[in-house]
């Protein structure tokens, strides 16, 4: 694994928020939005051999490696600074996912993170009008916090990938952590790409910001929500059309003449 350190920030009682790309890009959108709105500063990048073996060529033609990133934000109003962990990819192998999760938690220990907030998607496999936010905790006393912010306790289920492992390994390291999961239909395009879901991210951010006790403008994300909804509507209409077409082609037409 390779690391590029830009800065060694001095942080006061920081919270940490983590969100890598996953289903609906819910966690990634939320992390990116926080970074954008808070103007958080990049301080470290991680490159892993378990990332998919390709590079990205951006619109302006500049090559970029796949990477995971740490940002920080100094909170001038309240006591807790913030570390945000995100990236443009998740490690593909379980070994790589564990390695990355451990690196994240090493940073959490290094910066004496007070509380960790991991983000993930809660797949419903059906349309979602107003995404509900579910939660899970590493320590029983944190359940009170879920109740306080009207987060539904997640009874059963799994959180796959690095987003889940960061949360799980935090418990082993005795780092207090809350995982917030926002409802998403989990739509996938015909070519296998997950449809991004800013609406789920919006619901998640509403809760997260209250928990972090920070204020950010959530209006700009509404525009993205509208665009995504239009896209999903088109997708649903197409799906309906094709389903109907398949149904018609597989249903045998009744015989024209019936002789008894």
């Amino acid at each position: 694994m390779d690391f590029k350190i830009y800065k060694e920030p001095q942080l006061k009682d920081p919270y940490m928020v983590t969100g890598l790309p996953g289903i609906g890009h819910v966690a990634k959108i939320s992390a990116d939005y926080l970074i954008e709105e808070l103007k958080a500063e990049l301080f470290e990048e991680i490159y892993s051999p378990s990332f998919p073996p390709y590079v990205l060529i951006s619109k302006d033609g500049v090559v970029e490696l796949l990477k995971n990133e740490f940002y920080y934000w100094k909170n001038t109003k309240l006591k807790n600074d913030l570390i945000i962990f995100t990236g443009n990819v998740q490690a593909l192998t379980p070994e790589g996912q564990y390695e990355i999760a451990k690196e994240v938690l090493n940073r959490a220990e290094k910066f004496k993170v007070k509380k960790l907030f991991t983000m993930a998607a809660y797949v419903t496999n059906k349309p979602v009008t107003k995404p509900k936010v579910y939660g899970a905790v590493t320590h029983v006393e944190l359940l009170e916090e879920l109740k306080k912010y009207e987060v539904i306790q997640m009874d059963v289920g799994g959180i796959s990938g690095t987003n889940g492992l960061i949360f799980g390994l935090a418990k082993l390291k005795n780092i207090p952590a809350i995982c917030l999961l926002s409802e998403t239909p989990g739509y996938v395009t015909s070519s296998g790409y997950a449809v991004i879901d800013p609406k789920a991210a919006q619901s998640l951010l509403e809760v997260l910001c209250k928990m972090l006790d920070i204020e950010i403008d959530l209006k700009p994300i509404e525009e993205r929500v509208k665009m995504a909804e239009e896209f999903i509507q088109q997708l649903e209409e197409k799906e309906k059309y094709w389903r109907e077409l398949i149904r018609k082609s597989t249903t045998p037409s009744p015989p024209k003449d019936i002789y008894l």
Partner: peptide, 11 residues
């Protein structure tokens, strides 16, 4: 060209 560049040369 915009997007993923795979394999030996890309890396």
């Amino acid at each position: 060209y915009e997007g993923a560049f795979y394999g030996f040369s890309g890396l």
